[in-house]
């Protein structure tokens, strides 16, 4: 019974991490749009290449934030949560 409970915890953590990374779609689309617009701007005005590139990198990094929130949650679920939850379970059973 204990093995089943621990298995459910580990499986739940892995599934949760996978689901969290669905958020990677959003920044991907957003950064793609940003780079497309930057390419268009450079094509129209090649002399502005430097400032357009730096502004685009800045915007991309900010658009990445939501993806990174998901990444942080996924990393916590994989590396931190299983230990924590199994300990909680063992303590509850021991009490």
């Amino acid at each position: 019974m204990l093995e089943l409970a621990i298995g459910i915890i580990l499986g739940g953590c892995a599934l949760g991490a996978g689901c969290a990374m669905i958020a990677g779609i959003g920044p991907g689309i957003g950064e793609g749009n940003a780079v497309a617009a930057a390419c268009e701007a450079i094509g129209r005005q090649p002399e502005c290449k430097g400032s357009v590139t730096s502004t685009m990198l800045m915007g991309c990094a900010i658009a990445e934030t939501t993806g990174l929130y998901a990444l942080v949650i996924a990393i916590l679920l994989i590396f931190v949560a299983p230990n924590l939850l199994v300990n909680v379970l063992l303590r509850a059973l021991g009490a």
Binding site: A61, I62, E64, L68, Y69, L71, V72, I75
Partner: peptide, 16 residues
């Protein structure tokens, strides 16, 4: 919070 997570997440994801 977002400033801290952005910097930390990028570097950590690179090393992972």
């Amino acid at each position: 919070i977002s400033m801290a997570f952005r910097h930390y997440g990028n570097v950590l994801s690179g090393s992972v």
